[in-house]
């Protein structure tokens, strides 16, 4: 494949000045080095433009048009400037959803990373057998398809015959007899948090553990000889050395938890109060696909994209810096 590229480039390039055979040899190879990377990028760039680029363009265009049900049936979409933004962002329901989404994202991301870090340190502290038991159970949880996981948790938290209510009732908390977890916003989000933390901790724990094992033994040995106890070794050597891994997984968690849509959507299907449990994605989904207000949905979606970029900007910059590009 790369040979074809190497052969194809000189023939399509500008004609090389006539030179002796000795001088000609390096020319094609140097040209290959210039042209090949762009050719190699073409498929990825094309698919990204098609699957993500065009939708973003459509979204920017239609966030400034009146695009509702009438336009679905052939009416031309009228340019309305920033009307959609004004309409959507002056409505109080959006801001409730924004605050809820950010709070949910931060709570889940930090909880996940804190637990993951704790589990990783625990794996380092225990012997091999116990560590493998913990790793296998984390892997099993990680491997669970998201929809199957949400379905199982719905069953666990089922109000009538779920294990959670049975357990809480049997330890004397009669409040939970027949308690409908998904019917109230606070317990709805408690269940959602349990699901998301359960699903996300394995990746974080195993990544951080891999980072911990990459800390050279000599460094730890040297610290031990200098009289550092386990606490000092953890706080002053291990954590600083694995900081890059922790920031990467925290970055990923924040981004992933801001895009929580499916879990909420699936939980809402069992009769939850929809407007009080919507996160941003669900809000957009209902506005666009539910009510057919594509202009307004596009405006909110652009806001979500901007929010993602702003939230992740410092992390991306630090990643790029670390990478010494």
């Amino acid at each position: 494949m790369s040979q074809n590229v190497a052969l194809g480039v000189p023939s399509s390039g500008s004609p090389a000045p006539a030179a002796g055979p000795a001088a000609q040899v390096p020319v094609p190879s140097r040209r290959t080095f210039k042209a090949s990377p762009y050719l190699l990028l073409i498929p990825a760039v094309v698919i990204l433009l098609l699957g993500l680029g065009y939708p973003i363009y459509w979204q920017i265009l239609n966030s400034m048009r009146q695009y509702g049900l009438e336009q679905q049936f052939g009416q031309p979409a009228v340019f309305v400037g920033l009307d959609n933004f004004v309409r959507v962002f002056t409505a109080p329901d959006l801001w409730a959803v924004v605050v809820r989404s950010i709070a949910f994202c931060l709570v889940n991301a930090f909880l996940t990373v804190a637990l993951g870090l704790g589990f990783a340190l625990l794996m380092r502290a225990v012997n091999k057998v116990v560590r493998i038991i913990l790793q296998v159970s984390l892997l099993l949880a990680w491997a669970m398809p998201m929809v199957a996981a949400v379905t199982v948790f719905k069953w666990l938290f089922d109000f009538r015959t779920g294990v959670v209510n049975w357990f809480l009732t049997s330890i004397g908390l009669d409040f939970f007899q027949g308690f409908s977890w998904l019917a109230k916003p606070w317990s709805f989000f408690f269940v959602a948090t349990v699901i998301i933390v359960w699903m996300s901790v394995p990746f974080v724990a195993l990544s951080i553990y891999a980072g911990l094992t990459s800390v050279p033994d000599e460094v730890l040995e040297a610290a031990r000889i200098d009289g550092a106890g386990p606490w000092n070794i953890t706080m002053r050597i291990l954590l600083p050395m694995i900081r890059p891994v922790i920031s990467i997984v925290l970055l990923l968690q924040i981004i992933w938890d801001l895009r929580v849509f499916a879990q909420i959507n699936l939980l809402q299907q069992s009769g939850a109060p929809v407007s009080e449990t919507n996160l941003l994605g669900n809000f957009i989904y209902q506005m666009g696909i539910g009510k057919g207000d594509f202009g307004g949905a596009a405006a909110v979606a652009l806001f979500v994209l901007a929010l993602t970029v702003v939230l992740s900007w410092p992390y991306v910059r630090s990643l790029m810096k670390e990478d010494a590009l």
Binding site: L48, G51, L52, Y54, P55, I56, W58, Q59, N62, I255, L258, R259, F261, L280, G281, N282, I284, Y285, G288, I289, F294, A297, A298, A301, L302, V304, L305, T308, V309, S312, V316, L319, M320
Partner: peptide
């Protein structure tokens, strides 16, 4: 880096 962070819900109406 930025594109892999874009949430599906920020795009799925347009998609």
């Amino acid at each position: 880096l930025f594109v892999q962070m874009l949430p599906a819900e920020g795009l799925f109406i347009a998609q």
